[in-house]
Design a protein around this nucleic acid. Structure first.
Length: 497
RNA sequence: GCCGGGUUCGUCUAGUGGUUAGGACAUUAGGUUCUCAACCUAAGAACACGGGUUCGAUUCCCGUACUCGGUACCA
């Protein structure tokens, strides 16, 4: 049974790079009918951020990546844990790690180290100065049993290190990077248990991946260099190591590692701006992977079918907002209207265009569909939609009267046309049915009969209704506004001139 | 410094020991149009560099450059 996991640290929010890592792990597992687990790696007390776990879980849920196992957010908004390997939050598994560290010491694969931070800093400085590789010098490796005993009893601060064999090489056949070799003499005797009793990442990740029966470790490239340490730990425990797949990094436009400084990196920010999870997933999936065909739009289920680690790139990919916008536009345009309205409502409320959620009747929703349709083809995200739709909801439009006159027309002609237009639209005899199709037909007829130029009528009509030089078409707006409001705005425009 | 990765249009990428090096986003131009957007058409735009191997390398090998990651009692 294939099992992958996403194992973030709750040091803030879910990062878009993390989202992609989670996605690939999810896709790989699901493609093969396997299990996708979520584990929280909170072994650094200093960097723990309140609410970090909730943020990660919420962002994953938004993206549609639901873990089968591990940490989950239940209906009450509380964190629960499922799975038969004990809790999936590392800080609650301290006794498990302690037990395994003791085992390594007993087997001679681990040793106590009492070195001070100052000594280690000094050591490193000297090594660099001499152009030597850096690493622990095994100062505490051969302390006598009695001395260790004595110093432990005296409560001297100490850590436990793993004892890496100095001969030979450690090979890794990465599913993405291919074969990579490391000389053992250059692998550091890494600390596995910190002075505060918490394990380091290296120990915890190996113990947990083994105990939780993870078959494929899919993680960011920043772990590639420490993988030989992990492979050595598997050996020391006598365990079979999982397969490894190290993903290339996501980059800033200047090709540096994707960071906050150059834009949004938190998934929740994209959600807040009105990017659809479908677009986000599709976009992020294509950063470093492609199906080998020209098809670009994929649902999560389609990705599951097509995904393949062997088509994942080895090099980093720039996180390109313009492409994200394009994906989002595609999804906004192809989504069915009532669904789109549902998703827009929170943004309309946020922008205070709609006051009360509870007042949204079915009839009102139907009307909103027409409203949203006005702008869906012109915006890149949902917060832009609510911004663009302000003119529909606003009571009194505020614009400069000068823009009412079409560039090829005159003020006099504009006045005349606006006046006649109002009369036509007001007449229930001429315009019986208030739909954009009928409005277009009737006004088109009139323009033709009177031999007017379309622009001299449609431009001022559209500007009068929207208050903007650039906007959706006059008939669509009129339909949404209704007869009364439409005529009111035309009259207002006439007065302005 | 040491160790490990990477390098095809501006960006995401396809691809091959012999191709007019393909697509998408972006850009530019034209069409459509009352405006913007959308849409349609077209254009420009890439194999990091230097050596090999080979009849022939963008593709295989070796170096160089650049770049990214690691080098923590952070993950």
């Amino acid at each position: 049974m294939i099992k992958t996991r996403f194992a973030p640290s709750p040091t803030g929010f879910l990062h878009v790079g993390g989202l992609r890592t989670a996605l690939y792990a999810y896709l790989f597992a699901k493609k093969q009918g396997g299990v996708f687990a979520l584990r929280i790696e909170d072994t650094d007390k200093e960097r723990f951020v309140e609410g970090g776990i909730e943020n990660i879980v919420r962002s994953l849920a938004w993206a549609g990546l639901r873990p089968d196992e591990g940490v989950d957010l239940d209906k009450m908004g509380k964190i629960t844990q499922k799975g038969d390997c004990g809790p999936y939050i590392q800080s609650t598994r301290l006794d498990i790690y302690k037990k395994h560290v003791d085992e390594l010491i007993k087997k001679g694969h681990g040793y106590y180290c009492f070195c001070s931070k100052e000594r280690l800093d000094e050591l490193r400085k000297m090594q660099e100065l001499n152009k030597m590789p850096t690493g622990y010098d095994r100062h505490c490796c051969n302390l006598s049993k009695e001395e260790i005993e004595k110093r432990l009893k005296a409560n001297e601060p100490h850590v436990v290190r793993m004892k890496i064999p100095k001969e030979g090489i450690t090979k890794l056949n990465d599913l993405i990077k291919g074969e990579v070799e490391f000389k053992n003499e250059l692998i550091d005797d890494q600390v596995i248990l910190k002075a505060d009793g918490y394990p380091t990442y290296h120990l915890a990740v190996v113990v947990d991946d083994h105990l939780m029966k993870i078959t494929h470790v899919i993680r960011g490239e920043e772990w590639l260099s420490s993988t030989p340490k992990h492979i050595q730990l598997y050996k020391m425990f006598g365990w079979k190591a999982p397969e490894f797949a190290h993903l290339p990094l996501l980059l800033n436009p200047d090709k540096s590692k994707l960071s906050k400084r150059q834009g949004d990196v938190a998934v929740e920010n994209y959600k807040a701006k009105g990017y659809l999870p479908e677009a986000m997933i599709n976009f992020v999936a294509f950063l470093g992977w492609n199906p080998g065909t020209d098809k670009e739009l994929f649902t999560l289920d389609e990705l599951v079918k097509e995904f393949n680690l062997s088509r994942v790139n080895k090099s980093g990919a720039v996180f390109n907002l313009q492409k994200l916008d394009w994906y989002n536009e595609q999804y906004i345009r192809q989504m069915n209207l009532s669904e789109l309205v549902e998703r827009c409502v929170p943004f309309l409320i946020e922008a205070r265009l709609i006051k009360d959620y509870r007042k949204i009747t079915d009839e009102y929703k139907k009307w909103l569909e027409g409203v949203v349709a006005l702008e869906r083809g012109r915006v890149a995200n949902l917060s832009q939609i609510s911004e663009a739709l302000k003119f529909v909801f606003i009571d009194k439009l505020n614009y400069d009267a000068g823009i009412l006159v079409w560039k090829k027309s005159t003020k006099k002609e504009t006045e005349k046309n606006l006046k006649l237009l109002s009369e036509i639209l007001l007449s229930t005899k001429i315009v019986q049915i208030w739909t954009k199709e009928n409005l277009e037909a009737k006004i088109g007829e009139w323009i033709k009969e009177e031999e007017l130029s379309a622009g001299s009528v449609l431009w001022p009509m559209r500007v009068a209704l929207s208050g903007q030089e650039n906007s959706p078409g006059p008939f669509e707006i009129a339909e949404v506004l209704g007869r009364e409001k439409t005529v009111e705005r035309l009259t207002e425009a006439f007065k302005k001139l």
